[in-house]
């Protein structure tokens, strides 16, 4: 029997792990690295994030907060974005997802090192709901990140597809791909080598500010204005 790709990833990341596969492609459990317990929470198989998914993930985050104060959390990010359905919108998926991100953010602010890794795929609201609520999100080589598939993007922006594809070559703010999200500061980096080394470093690292993404985007040349503009507004410039 061939192991599930997420289990193979966990094998590579941890000395040992005890992670359950639950409904809605949710996983939760623990892994041990250098003898240190790490809470593992996430989704698999390009899950669509519906209300049940988001609520189950939030429940696992709250359980760590309640039962294991200070325990680091590794969020496995693998989703196709938010689930598109009448039921999810009727129930306020945006609110349930916001609750999930608020829980992750609360953990981050209360002594839990919260690290994300994109494995497989992360799409738009699904990335915002998960990886973007961590202190540092990384990607594995080959992982895909995007806001929208190029065809749909071309249709909605009314930019011809061939022109859009040409722009992708030079515009990291526009083009899909982990490397572009790294350049704009949306990802801390890609774990190119041994993922266990990547995880170890990510768990030990800290950033000097609450939100390092604007600085990273500016330093890496992919998103040059955000940091300056936010600083100008914070200073009340021009009033």
């Amino acid at each position: 029997m061939i192991a599930h790709p997420t289990d193979r990833l966990l094998d590579a990341l941890f000395e040992r792990h005890d992670v359950r596969h639950e409904d809605n492609m949710v996983i939760a459990g623990e892994g041990w690295l250098d003898g240190r317990a790490v809470a593992v929470i996430g989704t698999t198989d390009r899950a669509f994030i519906g209300v049940e998914t988001a609520l189950a993930l939030a429940d696992h985050v709250l359980a760590v907060l309640r039962d294991h104060p200070g325990r680091p959390i590794l969020l496995i990010v693998d989703n196709g974005g938010q689930r598109l359905s009448r039921w999810d919108e009727l129930m306020g998926n945006n609110g349930v997802i916001a609750h999930l991100t608020t829980c992750l953010d609360f953990a981050r602010r209360n002594g839990h090192r919260v690290v994300g890794v994109v494995h497989g795929l992360a799409v738009s609201g699904g990335f915002m709901a998960t990886g973007m609520a961590t202190a540092a999100c990384h990607a594995l080589p080959g992982a895909e990140l995007r806001v929208m598939v190029p065809d749909a993007m071309a249709r909605i922006t009314r930019i011809p597809l061939d022109r859009l594809m040409a722009l992708f070559e030079t515009q990291p703010v526009l083009a899909p791909g982990a490397e572009n999200f790294v350049r704009i500061g949306g990802l801390h980096g890609v774990w190119e080598g041994d993922p266990r080394e990547g995880l170890r470093a990510a768990l030990d690292a800290t950033d000097p500010e609450d939100d390092p993404r604007r600085r990273l985007g500016a330093e890496r040349g992919g998103r040059g204005r955000a940091a300056d503009v936010a600083a100008l507004v914070r200073a009340g410039a021009g009033a």
């Binding site: 738009s124 990335f127 915002m128 973007m132 609520a133 806001v147 929208m148 993007m153 909605i156 922006t157 930019i159 990291p172 703010v173 526009l174 083009a175 572009n180 999200f181 704009i184 500061g185 949306g186 939100d211 993404r213 604007r214 985007g217 998103r223 955000a226 936010a230």
Partner: peptide, 13 residues
């Protein structure tokens, strides 16, 4: 969508 990735990260910020 014209600056999709930057907009998405901006909303996270």
């Amino acid at each position: 969508l014209h600056e999709a990735n930057a907009g998405l990260i901006a909303m996270g910020e």
